[in-house]
Design a protein around this nucleic acid. Structure first.
Length: 921
RNA sequence: GCUCGGGUGGUGGAAUAGGUAGACACGCAGGACUUAAAAUCCUGUGGGCAGUAAUGUCCGUACGGGUUCGAUUCCCGUCCCGAGCACCA
């Protein structure tokens, strides 16, 4: 009997689905394990072979953990709100609701074909009102809370107003952006609207004026992680900075906790590093400088990490957007400054980034005073100082900061070296080492001591204080789009007010036109009656990351109408034990979700501070594009190795027309009418294509659809092959060349059970020692590899074991049955079929993982003293290999510590007769 | 520029508390079965040199040093590739 994967896979997929084999429930009797995939955005293009890579890995792990007796939560859903569906709607008029539902149906079909063990009863979709009710609910909670820096957690806004009533805002340590200070009496004298304005500056979800990434082409603002190199990540349109009033989340309040929390997470170092960079903690000092603009004197604050260099400050620089610019520009310089600011404004963010070497700036006419030296310091404005970081103003130390140095040289400002023996004639000396000079009380100190000493002095003289700065900004939370969660906010007298919880979910209304209105209003302005009790509702919607920030909690209790997740289910499932997904979410989703989770933790809705304990980033599968070479102005194509003899154009050709770089010329002619009459110049009678590794995409004609592979080889082969391709974390091009090997292996596996005529070969004989040895070595290997996520090497181990057992002509049930269990996480369908053929109850999921027995793999030893270096005594280990040949090993007689000259400890020396080859130390 | 990864056959990749480098697979070459193809199976396959051959021998894990009885693995320096951040004061 042949291995008929098609029949087998159809049979078991429908069995699993009709029997709800993978349905899970909270079961306090059994240990839980939560394995999560980053849920996909259901795009119109469907899945390509790269998408399932992580899903296969997580499925293997889930199935393995089930066999180990865990109650495994392994859910799937869809991140269904997003830009592509909306843009498609603008182009075609098709409502996103419909296209999204269609795409989901298609995704589901494709996923089902791969044999994943998801509990589909827990499926969620972020665009479903019963789901986004809880996204809105969390937003309301953030609106109603503030962040207390004393307790370092979120607290109800009432505790803050209570504080205001008694003490004003002078004593409270809150994360806020309130400009004014007020006393208790003043607070009480405020009107309701004034009070609301103040409170808005403290809320964790707040409406605030800020410089935002505005994308004209998309008609919306974008978060920092949605912008790369000054272009939008989606679409690649230019992005400019614009001051706008937007909803924001006070993520920056959690900066320190987000940083600390990384410590105990089992994430890759590179990913943690990315988050650390993104949070961008830097320790330093905030210092006040007195400035004078000719008419008045006041203090200006700067942030520096190098307080020790204060004696070398020769000028000050403001960001063009700084609020001090206006105050410090003297009348004579007004025209010049205005011209400079206009010049800066015309530059896009992208230009500002690419022209980093251009030095520009203008003098304000004002001077600051160095508090340590009393020297006059001219105050300049330059675009190299950024408004968003620190205080938007710096003290410039050209001798020890390369940016200040370039600026000083360009505008002929003095440079004062502060480190003994450093040469600043050509470039600045930025390194934090050396001994201080020209620095008053710091002279003679090494830099690492001078930094804290300087800060201490600054504090002593009350010129400023120690300060930790973060690069992490608050998340901009409004999008001027239709296809997202509506805000549970309405406006009364122009003041934002929360909807009552009972009004949730606030459902997204159906509209006719998805375009932003002519006046730049969001699409929701086209909705009829977009009001609450006669008051206008917020018209922007939430960004993509809103729906994905707490979805892992919802899977724990997806149907709950009363709460995001019940306390009982949250206590049981706790957190995600294993999270698998792409590294592209490092500074987006993975920061936001951690923030969101910490916020809910503060409020007591969830029991874990961190949502994802272990995280594995699967690599990207790139496409391998194929090319043909058309001789210019002809319809003749020349093969790869002869192309240099002609003047050719490289053209992408559909990889499905190419096998092992050989082009199917007839299929090529049929592919596109343009090539119907194509001629070919061949080599050895074949047309060889060129190739390149590129991103897998439709436009490169290099997309390989998993459905095609499934119908050719079956899902089990695809699953194993994707794992066999290389380490999970590594990116690699998709290359079908090796898939036959894996497919052959599965056929070979099948043949262990049946002969050519389909007769069952399985016997009830007692297993032989060598057979048990193969089996138990494999058990140990599979267990080890799965725990360490090296799925590729496991498959090699399977291949070796099956070859060995085939050589031993082993068809014994007691060997084959555990083998089927071992392979079931990788190739579940064939395993189920064979499991049933062996006469067991379906399904393998109810079996348990075979137990490794060391006895079977232990080496047989006997005394056989030999000498080595005249000092060591060894035991000979007799070992039979599978062909029955003898391998001799020599093991140190006892565990005494013996030392070589280098001091290494020797435990075991393995010897091949006559020659020492292996000394284990 | 800074940070983090990584450089192993024709290819994907094995092997690191230092111990026979190249497992496993692909590809390629040769062979068996077959009228033929498909499928399946067997053999060989890092390089050089010597030998009819079994085999022997030297060189080999980006490059140059070091530690060690022994280095793909540890240390120092150089080069290259990938990823992330990037006027962050």
């Amino acid at each position: 009997m042949e291995y008929k994967f098609k029949e087998i896979e159809d049979k078991w997929q429908s069995y699993w689905s009709s029997h709800k084999t993978f349905k899970v429930d909270t079961d306090p009797e059994r240990p839980k394990f939560y394995v999560l995939d980053m849920f996909p955005y259901p795009s119109g293009a469907g899945l390509h072979v790269g998408h399932p890579l992580g899903y296969i890995a997580s499925d293997i792990y889930s199935r393995y953990k089930r066999l180990r007796g865990y109650n495994v939560l392994h859910p799937m859903g869809y991140d269904a709100f997003g830009l592509p569906a909306e843009q498609y709607a603008i182009q075609t008029g098709q409502p996103p609701q419909k296209t999204t539902a269609d795409n989901i149906a298609r995704y589901r079909k494709q996923l089902d074909k791969l044999g994943f063990s998801y509990d589909w009863d827990r499926e969620i979709r972020t665009c479903d009102p019963s789901y986004y009710k809880w996204t809105q609910w969390a937003f309301l909670k953030m609106f109603q809370h503030w962040f207390n820096r004393e307790s370092c957690k979120a607290e109800p806004i009432e505790t803050l107003t209570n504080e205001f009533v008694h003490n004003g805002n002078r004593l409270v340590r809150a994360a806020h952006h309130c400009q004014k200070e007020f006393s208790a009496e003043e607070w009480l004298s405020f009107t309701d609207n004034e009070k609301e304005d103040v409170l808005m500056c403290y809320r964790i979800a707040y409406l605030g004026e800020t410089s935002v990434n505005w994308c004209e082409a998309l008609g919306t603002v974008l978060a920092n992680d949605e912008v790369k190199d000054g272009l939008s990540v989606r679409g690649g349109y230019p992005v400019e900075q614009k001051k706008m009033k937007q909803w924001q989340l006070r993520v920056s309040a959690y900066a320190e906790r987000l940083l600390e929390g990384l410590e105990d997470l089992a994430w890759s170092d590179s990913l943690k590093e990315m988050q650390r960079n993104w949070i961008g903690r830097s320790e330093g000092a905030q210092m006040d400088f007195m400035v004078n603009n000719g008419t008045e004197t006041f203090s200006m604050t700067v942030f520096t990490t190098r307080a020790d260099t204060v004696f070398g400050v020769t000028f000050m620089v403001l960001a063009p957007e700084s609020e001090w610019v206006e105050k410090l520009t003297v009348p004579e310089k007004e025209k010049e400054v205005r011209e400079y600011l206009d010049y800066v404004k015309t530059k896009t963010e992208r230009e500002r980034m690419t022209e980093t070497h251009r030095v520009t700036g203008v003098f304000t006419g004002s001077y600051a005073v160095n508090p340590f030296t009393g020297k006059q310091l001219p105050v300049w404005i330059s675009e190299y100082v950024m408004a968003g970081y620190g205080t938007g103003a710096i003290m410039a130390v050209p001798a020890h900061d390369s940016r200040d140095y370039i600026f000083a040289r360009h505008f002929n400002l003095p440079v004062i070296p502060l480190i003994e023996g450093c040469d600043v004639s050509h470039e600045s000396f930025d390194a934090k080492d050396g001994v201080m000079c020209n620095s008053g009380f710091l002279n003679g100190m090494p830099v690492e001591k001078a930094i804290p000493a300087a800060i201490e002095e600054v504090e002593k003289r009350q010129l400023g204080s120690r300060k930790v700065n973060y690069r992490l900004r608050d998340a901009i939370f409004s999008r001027q789009r239709y296809w997202g969660e509506p805000f549970p906010i309405y406006y009364k007298d122009g003041v934002a007010r929360p909807l009552p919880e009972s009004a949730l979910p606030l459902e997204l209304p159906l509209i006719d036109s998805f375009r932003p209105s002519g006046s730049g209003e969001p699409p929701l302005s086209n909705a009829k009656n977009w009001t609450y009790e006669g008051h206008p509702l917020e018209k922007s919607t939430m960004p993509g990351f809103a729906g994905s920030s707490a979805y892992y909690l919802r899977y724990m209790d997806p149907a709950n109408a009363e709460a995001l997740v019940s306390e009982r289910d949250n206590r049981y499932w706790q957190d995600v034990d294993l999270y698998i997904g792409g590294t592209e979410h490092a500074t987006g989703h993975l920061i936001y979700s951690r923030f969101w989770n910490k916020f809910l933790f503060d409020l007591g809705y969830v029991c874990k501070d961190e949502p994802f304990r272990k995280l594995v980033n699967q690599g990207m599968i790139q496409g391998r594009s194929s090319f043909v070479y058309r001789i210019k102005n002809t319809n003749t194509f020349v093969t790869y190795n002869l192309k240099d003899k002609y003047d050719t154009t490289e053209i992408h050709v559909d990889v499905n027309l190419v096998q092992n770089d050989r082009l199917d010329t007839d299929a090529f002619k049929a592919w596109n009418p343009e090539y119907r009459n194509a001629d070919f110049i061949l080599e050895n009678g074949e047309y060889i294509c060129g190739s390149a590794v590129e991103k897998m995409s439709k436009s490169m004609f290099n997309v390989v659809n998993p459905d095609t592979i499934c119908s050719h080889y079956g899902a089990d082969t695809l699953r194993m092959y994707e794992m066999f391709l290389g380490p999970l974390e590594q990116s690699k091009p998709w290359d079908t060349n090796g898939i036959d090997g894996v497919h052959r292996f599965l056929k070979k596996f099948w043949r262990m059970f049946f002969d050519k005529n389909g007769t069952l070969l399985v016997t009830e004989e007692t297993p032989h020692g060598n057979e048990l040895k193969v089996l138990h070595n494999l058990i140990r290997k599979v267990e080890d590899d799965i725990e360490h996520f090296s799925f590729n090497t496991t498959i090699s181990a399977f291949m070796i074991s099956i070859n060995e057992l085939t050589d031993l002509h082993c068809h014994k049930r007691s060997i084959l049955e555990p083998l089927v269990i071992l392979i079931s996480p990788y190739a579940p369908h064939i395993a189920e079929e064979l499991w049933q053929i062996l006469g067991n109850q379906p399904s393998v999921a109810n079996a348990s993982f075979p137990i490794y027995n060391e006895e079977y793999t232990k080496e047989h030893t006997m005394d056989y003293p030999v000498s080595f270096n005249g000092k060591l005594r060894f035991k000979k280990t007799l070992d039979l290999d599978l062909t029955g040949a003898q391998i001799e090993r020599f093991v140190l007689e006892d565990e005494r510590t013996l030392k070589y000259a280098g001091g290494a400890q020797i435990r075991k020396v393995i010897v091949i007769p006559g020659k020492i080859i292996n000394i284990v130390v």
